[in-house]
Nucleic acid binder design. Structure first.
Lengths: 229, 229, 229, 229
DNA sequence: AATGAATGAGTTTTCATTCAT
DNA sequence: TATGAATGAAAACTCATTCAT
């Protein structure tokens, strides 16, 4: 009140005003809560109430930020895709051999997943352990980008003229499925995962690295909560 | 119950009591409706009401057959798993080389999927094109079985001593992801899919078969409904 | 902040303190917005939010001027009644014949309505074309005043000893209903309306003026908005 | 229960089954509650909750019968309009003089209103005594019908060639406004009201019947509630 | 068994009002 | 004094489940 009307247009610079800050904070509070809740209950079963409850905010506040569960979800997936897709694409464009193409794809992906587990964690139904993977439009766009990169690589004779669609599918399938295994080991070992997947794609099962001992982490549904908190 | 699913368009052969017949019929009506609804809305978002609505039956009737959405879901799962898991396991037990192990796994899987698309079709949210894959407990049990089979194969020196968990994950990832691509081509070509996946796992990308031209079928979300009906 | 919303089109005339001016302006902004909103949604369905939205002001600002929807409404009412009631009363007090009493009542009323359409415009629900007429306490007080004037006229033998309540009702009914017809013709013709109503009250249907051609104006619900803006 | 499965398709006849009966009853419970609530709070301010509360039914039950407040309201107004419009039209078609046309219109209308007060009772805001009249599409259709009947009467030389729109407006205005006065007297006297209005329209104020003594009923807002109950 | 309306707890959403900036 | 985000009470609506027929 004593700070007067405050002409905040100019001197603002990096200050951002407390209001601004709170808004950003609250938005993140909601997004994080939503990530947790989706992971715990699955997207379909999650309710806006569940998200609000996982937040210190009031119910009405949710609607100041998002119109619906769908909209929160959009926001989450956009964050993820925007972060990882350019990285993957750049790496692949630099590849001059099959080895590089394959290895950088897997390495970059697994490292991202290991860093940002929350966003990739496969959703599981607490009740029945049903596993749900949602590939949002942005993620699917990432698949398309991979396919295009494969086509480009084929035209540069980096790859033999294989079906780019099937190869993309195989890479995606392995990436997601192996990611999940990786997230179950402790500590997460993106390098081992990448080496495994890369070796498989370059030489088949007979070229795979010999068994690495890994411990099953004790992670269970119960722990998801604390993870995300 | 012993009179089986019974396509009831045909003359009632062995004449199970009409009562009996209706019971079986209604059960199947509900299960089919549930499959559709789960596919369209996802398991979490689907409601018992949705399932009933997709049925000519009254709401109360649902509860004569199943206690809840969960129970219908269990029933669906069991049908699928009971059908495919033993086949996969048997085939793999007969394998005496890596080649056989890998190829029979993919071939059997893709053939089943091509036959029984409804149950494997990846769920898509009509609204936002979100892709959802649900791995039910039974399906996950199938994954475990695969891992055990891999371990057995390793101990028989069929495989080198790789990480069975990661190999299982890779096989599963490729199987599901490639299945989906396969379901988009018309006619479905399980052999091509199996050949691709098998070659990849045996020799890596450089061993992959050369490009097969395939046509995108016109399949879209819109058709899911009629598919399943 | 002190540079204000300020309708700065015209030179600021008499230079009331800028502060002062803004206050009056904002008050009018709110009142006008409220008139619109009440007209569009009806009083009961209108919300303070609706009013604020129809304003360039912030929600909190509303409460600097009015405590509630009720209070704005009172203010609107008062404006209207303060404008028209004294005029009607004065005219009628000057009447020395039935003819004068009736004709001045209708003429004054229709002229006011034609001038200040916004406040008399019958409310219509855009959605369902429902017509809503609100007679506010002030308006009803105007009715009472009319009845008293009728009683006074009867006691002065201007009128035969009719039921003043029923006569008042008839005058009011015709005044409002014919007003509305008048507002639908373009240009508004308060004289024709007054002549019609006066003739009816003085001689019945057989004394009515012969048909006047009138054009339906293109006015529709859609235009209410722009009218009031 | 002892009546067994009861093949109710045939022997049903006039029986209608208890279920049927309950449905009709509940529908009426809701409609009556809605009439009360609209009368007490005004249409806009009334909520579905208010209607449900005025009913012995559960909240969900409301939605088995009507989708929204709007829909209940539609049902109410349809009931009214369907009841009164044909009667008015028939009477007017039989009229062979101005006198008959006017008198039957008013008489029929006032009698109906006196009989079915609930549906015509002008809505008042408990809080601020605001009067609200809603002319629904059906009611407006009744206005149009009157205008057409007037046009027909003019072409039959029953009426002089007056503006049918204005005459309709005047009749409607007087009918509604006088109705309301009538409802305030006790006992309701539709004949007096009709005589008054008819005399006014046939001969103007100088032809009006001499004052009838009438008592103001003690009706106040507070009593509306019990009235409608 | 089948039916389908009733139930009421739970979810979604809106809104008046407050209050820190 | 203006702003507009936060609040939480209340309204709107949905749904699994029961139960009379």
């Amino acid at each position: 009140m004593d700070s007067a009307p405050m002409r905040n247009d100019l001197p603002r610079a990096a200050a951002a005003g407390k209001r601004e800050q709170t808004k950003v904070l609250n938005r993140q509070l909601i997004l994080n809560a939503a990530r947790q809740v989706f992971a715990e209950l699955g997207y379909g079963a999650a309710t806006v109430r569940d998200i609000i409850r996982a937040t210190p905010l009031a119910s009405g506040t949710f609607y100041n930020y998002f119109k619906s569960k769908e909209e929160v979800y959009q926001a989450i997936r956009d964050e993820v895709a925007l972060a990882i897709r350019p990285r993957l694409h750049d790496e692949r464009m630099k590849a001059s051999t099959v080895e590089e193409f394959i290895s950088c794809t897997f390495r970059t992906f697994f490292e991202y997943v290991a860093d940002d587990r929350m966003n990739f964690r496969t959703i599981r139904h607490a009740a029945d352990n049903t596993r749900v993977r949602m590939d949002t439009p942005e993620v699917i766009a990432g698949f398309e980008e991979l396919r295009e990169d494969i086509e480009r690589a084929i035209s540069k004779n980096l790859f033999p003229p294989v079906d780019p669609d099937l190869l993309m599918a195989a890479i995606v399938g392995v990436a997601f499925e192996v990611s999940e295994r990786m997230l179950k080991t402790s500590p997460h070992d993106p390098k081992a995962a990448a080496d495994f997947a890369t070796a498989l794609f370059l030489g088949g099962v007979r070229a795979l690295p010999e068994m690495q001992h890994h411990e099953e982490s004790g992670e269970s549904n119960g722990e998801l909560k604390s993870d995300a908190a």
